[in-house]
Structures are given as structure tokens and as C-alpha cells.
Nucleic acid binder design. Sequence first.
DNA 1: TATCGTATCACAC
DNA 2: CTAACGGTGTGATACGATA
Length: 435
Amino acid sequence: MDVSYFSNAQRTIALIDVNNFYVSCERSFDPALKSHPVVVLSNNDGCIISRSNEAKALGIKMGEPWFKCQELVKKHKIKGLSSNYALYADMSNRVMTILSDFSPNQEIYSIDECFLDLTGFERKNILEYGQQMRNRILKWTGLPVCVGVGSTKTLAKLANHIAKKNTQFNGVCHLNQLREGELNRLFSELDVGEVWGVGRKLAIKLKALDIYTVLDLKQANSEYMRQQFSVVMEKIVHELNGTVCIELEEIVPPRKQILSSRSFGHSVRDFNSLAESISLYMSRAAEKLRSQQSLANIVQVYIRTSPFKLDEAQYGNGMTIPLPAPTDDTRQLVKVALWALKRLYKPNFNYAKAGVCLSDMIPRASAQFDLFASEQSNSRSTRLMSAMDCINAKMGRESIKLASEGFARPWKMKQGNKSPNYTTRWDQIPIASKN
DNA sequence: TATCGTATCACAC
DNA sequence: CTAACGGTGTGATACGATA
């Protein structure tokens, strides 16, 4: 009987995840990095956000501030690279395109992971299929990936984790092909915190209820879990037992909020520097807004000092401004943001961060014309913005911009050790050496 | 009373 | 040289305000 007639038919879902993604991208273009422990740093070279296996083995922790690791760094010659998002985004596109050939149903879940629906694929070939994915991605991009397969997204995630930690799986783990005893053994050895959706706090709360391992959680009563926690936890329990509660989302819904914020390379005290940064961030946010064909109804702006500088005076404040009419016009949005900044700004503080957020969006297609603006001015705005986006797409970011975004940018972030843009800038491709 | 808006929390990557 | 600690997005829940 063909079980696929039933909506609750068992599914086969794969989760493919690049190992140590950012570090692997860097290594793919600079093989010399392969012989060193390597980490990639967040903006401003602040925190560690990707680690090679060697770095993990040395005890370098995820999210750790870089300056706090300098002892270990010197001792073991750990390389710390500034993040190069243009490179990572480009590599991500390549990986996702390759994987899209393996199934008609793909959900790109994050920059380095995607789900593929393999329901109906010949069961016994799936392990081999996973190996094909790994081989092709390695050959075409130089990136190592692992493949986890299960009957729900939550199980596929776990399978991926198991494939990464246990070398005997050779990078591909299919939970539905394990014997029940073997599955239970694996689950009983996995901390409950490894489950997708169970973070630090929930893990503590679960353990207080004697739920320590993935197996414990799988065998928990879902009703009870809902009552003790939330619907989220109830769904997790069902998913661990093979019942789909979290569907594959193939079409990416438009963002509901668009945020652009950054810490400064050095703290700033003057209004003008803040105004420049706010203008720049708003320009970025507005570009994203237009690229998803939305108009925003609400603008938020905030500034704050550094919460880590305990000896300095602290101040942080934000403002939410509802717009008279939804818009995607950079000039209008910047104007509103600067208006807000004037009211938020207080002199004599060392500001460390500023940001803007656009929200309450509507699709541009459904926009009503602003009754108080002429039709002519609306279409002029649209045409100007399209022209700006076009020029910047063709000639490179910031070929054309508002003067208020600034030129000197004393607040610009630090990137002490950034790799070249190997894949997106011709002028940064290293000349091949003869060897 | 039902719903709304908003702040807060938790989580992922 | 010294100081130096990310950014973006989602969903659930709690709670007072509002229609």
C-alpha cells in the first residue's frame, strides 16, 4: 500500500549542515589555515563565532570575547580571522544550489544549513545519497558537510549532530535505519540540551524534573510537558517521536522586522558621529526593505553606552515612531530616524552602539497611496530609490548614497584580520603561485 | 470579555 | 600602543489598556 495517501504518512527529512562553516570557508581558499587551529570573529573582532575542531579541542568556547583568549592564542598559535560575510554568503549560495538538485523540496534554514524532503526516496539508497551530497559539495566548494536523516525536522537535526560527533557514521546518519536498541542507546547518551529548541534555561528546568537525556524527553508525557512548559515543548516531544509538528517551509516569508545595528570600533560622544551611523544603518535597512518589496509603518531608533564599562556613566534609550504613511524611501526613513536621534541624544556619554529597526510592514503591492502626497511625488520617490539600488547593485555598494551617511566614519568597526573577498571581487583574487 | 499592543524572555545560528 | 565583549530574527507569554 502506498502510505503517502495519508497526511500522517511517515516522512523522510534530511538536514545538511556545513561543519564549522565560517572557518571552513576561510580554509577552502587558504589551505595554509588547515594546519592551524582557526577561529572566526564577530564584528569588531569582538567574539568568537566559528571554531575549527582543533580550536574546540583546545577549550576555546563559542561566543568568548577574543581578547580574553589571548593566552591560549599565543600558546597554541591560534589564528583569529575577522568575519568576511560577503565570502560566506557567496559560499552559502553555492552549497544551497548544489543541494537543491537532490530534492524538489528544500528549506534553506540558515546560512549553512538546509532541510531536504526525501519522502518517497528509495529507503536503502538514502545513506548513499547522503554520501553523494557530501562528495559533490566537497568537490565543488571544498566545504565539509554532514547529513542527518529522520522523520521530522527535530530528528533530522539530532541525526546531524550524531553524524558530526561519531566518526563511525562517516558523515551521514539515518535514524530510521538504526535498530531500536541502538537508537535508544544513542539518545540516552545525548544531553537533553542538544535537542533543537532546548536552550540553556529549558535544559536546567528539564533536569529539575529528572529529564536529563534526549531519551528521557522523548519518553516524557507530552500533555504534562505542555502544562509544565509550553506548546513548544509539547511539539518537541511529538517531533522526537516521529510526529511532524514543524513543517518544511520552502517559501521564505518576508521579514516581519528589519534591524540594522552595530557596535562602534571606538566609542563616540558627539551627535554628528551618531547621526552618520544611524543614517548608514537606516540606508542598509531600507535597501533590505525594498529588496523584499515591503513598505514599513514603524521606525525604531536606539543608542546606548557599553554595558561592559562598569566604571563609566550608563545611558541607553530608544524611540518608536509610527509613520504617517508606509514607505521604503531612504530619505524619508533617515529623516525620521534623525529626528528621533535628536530627542534621544544626551551629551557627555561614551556611546558604544546604535541601531534602527523597521517593522509593521505591508507588501508594496497592497500599498495605498498617501492621501497627503501627490501621486507624482510618490512615483518620483519610487523611481529614485530603484535607480539608487540599480547603481549600487551594478557598481558596488555605496557607489551612491546619502551624504548624511558620512565619509570619515570615526566610529567604523574594527576588522584587523579580514581575508580577501575571493569570490566577489576580481581585484582581491590572489595571483596563482607556481607550485 | 475579547482583543490589542508592548515588553520580556528564550532560542537559534 | 592600548583597550577590547555580535548581529538578526522568530515565537510565546504576561499583563495592562482598550473597545
